[in-house]
Design a protein around this nucleic acid. Structure first.
Lengths: 350, 350
DNA sequence: CTATCTATTTATAACGTTATAAATCCCATG
DNA sequence: CATGGGATTTATAACGTTATAAATAGATAG
C-alpha cells in the first residue's frame, strides 16, 4: 500500500506540469487537439519519470485487454513444439502493448472449453490455437462472436479466416519423391489421427506423388502420429515380418520417427541401406541422430512469430482473407552435408 | 460496446436480488457480516447467471493481479524444457484465480530485465524463473522488494528463499557409480557454463564419486552444455584421438548427448561396448534412441507443478524456508528393461 | 415505551484511465 | 468594442470492484 503511491500515474504528471489529468492523457495519446508543444512537454516528463500506463485501469475503461492468448495443447508436451511457438509469439509481441497469456487446455476437456472461457470472460483481444479440425468448432464459435484469432492450421468450413499453416501436402510429395529417387518401391505414411485437418493434406500429397511415381503404398490404420511409442514400435516390428513390407516411410512426427527407427534397428535393418525414412523435423534433433536420415524442416518458431503478427493485424481490423500464410517445406536431406546444419543454428541464436 | 452490457456484473445480481452492489460483493466474498441466508441466495444467483468477477476491476481496486509470471529463458528453445515447465505450472494454477503470463527474456538482454519490468509495472503477484546463478541478481532484487518468487535452482547468497531444484550432485554420483560398475575407468563430465549454480552441484557430486571409486576423471574446459552441437562433436572427435581418451561420460543435456553419440558413432565406437554414457533425460526421447543408453530422469513438468504450488503458498505469506524442494534423480538404466518406460508414459497421459 | 445494543445492509469514495461534453482562451472580424 | 470561431484545455462521468464508514432494522434491556 505504501508502495502503491510511488508508482507514477497520470495524476503525478498532471501535478508536475500543472495540467489537468485529462490533458495529460490526451497528450500521451498524441491527440491532435492538444497543442504540439504541450504534447512534447508531457511526453518528455512521462519518459523522465518512467511512466507506464496501468493496464488494469486501461482495460477497465476501454474494454481492451492488450492480451493475446495462446491455447496450450496438452499433446505438445513432447519436444519443443509449444516452446518454439511461444518463443515465436513473444518475438512478434515484443515492443507492442500485448502480453502473452497461456490458456491451458487439459487433455480430458473439450477443445472448445478454453475458447469459451476466453470469450465469456473477455480474457484477451485475440487468440492463437493449433491442431485444427476440418469442421473446427473453435473456428466456428470465434467467427460467430467476431472475435479475432489466427489458427495454426486450416479448416474446411467454407469460411475465410486467418491462419498460418505448413504445406503438409508439399512435404508429403517431397518426401515421396526423395524416397523414390533412392529406389524405394513400397512406401508407408504414418498419418495423424482422423480428426485433424492436416491428415488430409498429408494423405493427398502422399497419394498424388505415389501415383505419379507408380510405386506401391500403404496407410496403416492401427497406429497414428499420436500413438504411444510402444505401439508404433510394436506395429512396425510386426509389419516388417508380414508379406511385402514397406521399404520406405514418411513420418511427420519427430519422436514417432525415433520409435520407428528403434524398431528398424532392433529388426536388424539399417536405415540408409535396407530402408529409408523421411521425417518432418521441427527441432535440431535430427542433425545429431545417427544414422543420419532425411528430414524436412518446419520452422515452428517462425510460425509462432507469423501467427502473432497476423493476429495483431487482425485485431486492428484487417480482413481475414489477407491474413493467411502457408509455410513452405525446407528439405534437409542427408547428402546436403554440413552446410544446412549451421543455417538453422544461426537463425535460432539470432 | 453493445456486447459489454450482456456480461453480468455485481450490478446485475444486485438488481436481480434487490440488494445493493456492496452487499452482493460482500456476500460473494462470504463476509460474516452478511446474513447466511442472503449469502447463499446471492451465491446461487451468481452461479445461475454465470457471474465471473472482472479481473481488471478487481486488480484496479485491490492491487492484486492474480497473475503468475513465468520468465521464458531464450535458451530453452530446444526440446521441451519450457513446455513441460509451463504445462506443470498450468496444472498447479488450475482451479485457482491465477493466470499464467509469459514474460520473455531475449537472449541479448540482461537476466534482470524481465524481473525489473515485472516489479516496476506490478505485472504479477509472483514470478518463476530458472537457471539460477550463485549470486543471482534476480533473487537479490526480488528479496529486496519483498516480491514473491520461486526459483528453479538454488543460489549461494546466504539468503533463505523458495526454490525447486533437481539434485544434480546426486545425479552425478549416480552416473559415476553406474559407469564404474560397468568397468569404465576414465570418466569425463560435460559441465554447464561457469555462471550457473548447478555447475557446482554437478561437479561436486562427480568429483566425490570419482574419488571414492578411485578412477581417473576429466572436466573439459573448451566446451559446455550450451555449446553448439558442432563444437561438442568436434571436441569429442578430437579428444578421442588424443592420449588416454575417456571411456565413459556423464552429460546433463539431452541434445548435447546426441552430439556426443554422433561423434562416438562416427569414430567407430559402439556405445555400450567400447564406451558408456549416462545422460540426464527430461523427455521421452531416450526411450526411443538406439543404441539404448543409460539415462537418469528429471521430471520437469513435475518441477513446474511444484513451483506453481509453492509460489501460491509464498504469495499467501508462508515463510520461504518452508518452501524448498529438492527433486530426487530417477535412474532409468538400460538393464531395467521395458517396465520403467511405461511408468513415465502413464504419468504424462494421466 | 424509550434507549441501547447487535445484526445486517447500504452509501460513499476510490483505484487509474479515457470518452464526451463543456469551458476557456485567444485572435480575427465586422 | 462586442462577436464569432477555432484552438486548446478542463470538468464530469463512467468502466467494475471493494474498503470504510454510516445507516437502518430488529431485538433487548431498562
Amino acid at each position: 500500500m505504501a508502495r502503491r503511491s510511488d508508482r507514477p500515474t497520470l495524476r503525478t504528471i498532471a501535478e508536475m506540469t500543472g495540467l489537468a489529468v485529462t490533458t495529460v492523457s490526451r497528450a500521451l495519446l498524441d491527440a491532435p487537439q492538444i497543442a504540439l508543444e504541450t504534447r512534447q512537454r508531457v511526453q518528455r516528463v512521462a519518459r523522465e519519470i518512467g511512466y507506464q500506463p496501468d493496464r488494469a485501469a486501461r482495460h477497465l475503461r476501454t474494454g481492451r485487454t492488450n492480451v493475446i492468448s495462446f491455447v496450450l495443447d496438452p499433446h505438445d508436451e513432447l519436444l519443443g513444439f509449444s516452446t518454439s511457438m511461444i518463443s515465436g509469439l513473444t518475438r512478434a509481441l515484443r515492443d507492442t502493448q500485448y502480453h502473452l497469456v497461456i490458456t491451458p487446455h487439459f487433455a480430458e476437456a473439450p477443445t472448445l472449453d478454453p475458447i469459451e472461457y476466453i470469450l465469456r470472460n473477455r480474457m484477451a483481444d485475440g487468440v492463437v490455437f493449433s491442431r485444427t479440425e476440418p469442421k473446427d468448432p473453435r473456428v466456428k464459435l470465434l467467427m460467430e462472436n467476431d472475435f479475432p484469432f489466427v489458427s495454426h492450421g486450416r479448416t474446411d468450413l467454407g469460411i475465410e479466416h486467418a491462419f498460418v499453416d505448413y504445406d503438409n501436402a508439399a512435404f508429403a510429395r517431397m518426401a515421396v519423391e526423395r524416397l523414390v529417387s533412392k529406389g524405394r518401391r513400397r512406401l508407408a505414411l504414418i498419418l495423424p489421427p482422423d480428426r485433424f485437418m492436416f491428415r488430409r493434406h498429408l494423405r493427398d500429397g502422399f497419394q498424388e506423388a505415389v501415383e505419379r511415381a507408380g510405386v506401391a503404398s500403404e496407410l496403416p490404420g492401427d497406429i497414428n502420429l499420436d500413438s504411444d511409442a510402444a505401439d508404433l514400435y510394436a506395429w512396425l516390428t510386426w509389419r516388417l515380418r508380414q508379406p511385402d513390407p514397406p521399404d520406405g516411410m514418411v513420418c511427420a512426427g519427430e519422436v514417432s520417427a525415433l520409435s520407428l527407427m528403434a524398431a528398424l534397428s532392433d529388426q536388424g535393418l539399417t536405415v540408409g541401406s535396407d530402408f529409408d525414412l523421411v521425417v518432418k523435423q521441427t527441432s535440431l534433433l535430427y542433425d545429431e541422430v545417427r544414422p543420419r536420415i532425411d528430414a524436412v524442416y518446419e520452422d515452428i518458431s517462425q510460425a509462432g512469430e507469423t501467427l502473432g503478427k497476423l493476429l495483431i493485424r487482425r485485431i486492428a481490423g484487417e480482413r481475414p482473407s489477407a491474413l493467411q500464410f502457408l509455410q513452405e517445406p525446407v528439405p534437409r536431406f542427408t547428402d546436403r552435408g554440413q552446410g544446412t546444419r549451421t543455417a538453422i543454428g544461426a537463425r535460432q541464436s539470432a
